[in-house]
Design a protein around this nucleic acid. Structure first.
Lengths: 340, 340
DNA sequence: GGTTGCCCCGAAAACGTTATCGTGTTGAAA
DNA sequence: TTTCAACACGATAACGTTTTCGGGGCAACC
């Protein structure tokens, strides 16, 4: 087993100083052609690579981005990571991933852990608990220490930093409007509890669309899901009692569950019930029928977030003007919707 | 903006030496109760946290695990990461994730990048290209440098290290046997090209099961998919020409595509065609009909891999005896299979 | 009073780099 | 012969820790 070789070892072996070795490898003009070649040959032979940790310590830069997300077993977040990783890779950065598991405490702990030197900045999406508690001191603290943070998707307005979002309200509005234009009047909503920021916004979009098209807002048509467990039951109850013509669901899981429940109850999708989901993930694509949905390009969001973060990391003087980028969405029409 | 405070700054502020500060914070008995309390109070006030990078350099340990996988937008890999992260977190490790994108070159580059000090060890699953080229020098090199590597799922026998797998051949065998016992004789196989190790093993399982039950092996019933693009077409062709009674697909995507194509052709699943998939991901759960599948517990694999790696990292003397852990699988029976 | 031992604390090395500055040698110009 | 610049290299500091060692001061003991 041959351990990693260091400058010191090379220096000793060639009987020169460490400085000479370092300079030779970085092609400094201070070093004679002769020794430079000699050192480089030796380094190549022993496959020398400068130690990242030492470089990080010296440069006070780790070239690593910390990602903190609620969970990774979630197609949307996985695509975002993928996007971040692409840009990071192009720019010579690594990504270190921490999962909050929707827990405030884990989010805080992970952040503090990474903030003590491990990363140069953060890209994160808030956990449900954090959104509920509205406690963002850990993020503010990190920012105060001079580390840039980019929030995406599940964000908050209570902390000043760069953000990448989609226009949830508008996207939802357009989805519901799409249903209205197809001729549906009795449109149900399956959404999350209000403290989930994106859920709330999408709910708003639904409400606004109904209102702008002079349709009544009927609370009985609105299902708010707290935990996935009883999701199916609540949807079934609503379907039973209300028999809507169409449903707008704020995520894939809700949408596919609607389809499953409806099918089970003998309601044909899309013939008797049209459904639109949110987030164009695997479920929407492979469900039967496949689901018309609002496509929310995670790769793009990830790429954008990474670009913003790295740009800020590589700025010489800091800029207090923070941006909020809105990634465009569009409706992907599939099999789960039909005109009346 | 208050930057991170260091030992040096505390020392200067309190007019003591750096050593004294360090020892005070680590509760060394060398330090008087008095100064210790003073230092600790000050440190707490300024929220001192030792710099990870400096610690890594000193201890020659980064407390980070490098994960290299083909892609993250893949439910199975996401669950594995999730499992790894759980254990890592429990043991005070971080995970840094790199994606090879199924490319040999990216796999090598990522590995070399992380190997120069960034991580203490690796957990990885081989890219398709790597499996095709059978070139594992980058892995061997890392091992030679004394960094432990744990391979999972897509592994190779050409390199000696710890491994975590499922018994792909046996799981496939059991799945096919399950179909045979239901009374099916004309069972098709939808699989990958042979160089994908797990694909090959599952194919073997299929072949063996047929053989052991005295069923003829018909090559026309076997579809080997190279890229996902023409997946649907090839499946359709086979369905058209052969009209099998059942299909064993080596992954979720193939399984759900079979369902879609069959449905499109008017073949009813499961009434006229039973289908079994592999990997119990979201698709299998939410597809209509939901898919009977071989559950391959990614979380468990991830946890096991992480445990093995960390165990090896924290051993004092090294142990040349490598283990290969087999994670048990089981068949999850859902709606896509019926008895004749 | 001198020696011993204990209690506190500081200096310094080490991890692996890079960058600044200093220095010895050589050759050429004055 | 003296002076000066250019050249080639080495010593050192710095990044932030931890740890080993050494030493000063003081009380106790002979």
């Amino acid at each position: 087993m041959k351990r990693k070789v260091t400058l010191k070892q090379i220096a000793k072996e060639l009987d020169v100083s460490i400085s000479t070795v370092s300079k030779s490898l970085r092609n400094s003009p201070e070093i004679s052609e002769d020794t430079r070649q000699k050192v480089q040959a030796f380094a190549k032979l022993y496959n020398y690579r400068p130690n990242n940790i030492a470089l990080s310590l010296k440069n006070k830069k780790t070239k690593t981005i910390g990602i903190i997300i609620p969970e990774i077993v979630h197609h949307f977040f996985a695509t975002v990571i993928s996007g971040i990783e692409q840009v990071a890779n192009e720019c010579g950065y690594n990504v270190i991933v921490c999962l909050s598991d929707e827990s405030f405490d884990k989010e805080v702990i992970n952040m503090e852990m990474l903030a003590t030197g491990s990363t140069d900045g953060f890209i994160m999406s808030l956990s449900k608990e954090t959104q509920q508690k509205k406690d963002f001191h850990h993020i503010q603290e990190v920012i105060n220490q001079g580390m840039p943070v980019v929030l995406f998707d599940r964000i908050t307005n209570d902390v000043l930093c760069d953000k990448v979002i989609i226009d949830d309200r508008r996207a939802a509005y357009e989805a519901v409007e799409f249903l209205i234009k197809k001729g549906f009047k009795k449109i149900a909503l399956v959404t999350t509890v209000d403290y989930v920021s994106v859920g709330k916004l999408r709910t708003d979009g639904y409400t606004n669309a109904l209102h702008d098209h002079d349709l009544p807002l009927n609370d009985d048509l609105v299902v708010k899901i707290e935990d996935i467990e009883n999701c199916a039951l609540k949807i079934e109850a609503m379907l039973q009692q209300q028999r809507p013509e169409a449903i707008f669901a704020v995520n894939e899981l809700f949408a596919v569950t609607c389809i499953k429940q409806a099918t089970k109850m003998g309601i044909k999708v899309p013939e008797e019930l049209s459904i639109i989901g949110f987030t164009d993930g695997i479920i929407s694509q492979y469900s039967s029928p496949s689901i018309t949905t609002v496509s929310q390009n995670g790769i793009k969001m990830g790429r954008k977030a990474a670009k913003m973060l790295i740009e800020r990391l590589e700025m010489e003087e800091e800029d207090e003007r923070y941006r909020t980028e809105v990634i465009e969405t569009h409706l992907v029409e599939r099999e789960s919707t039909l005109s009346l």
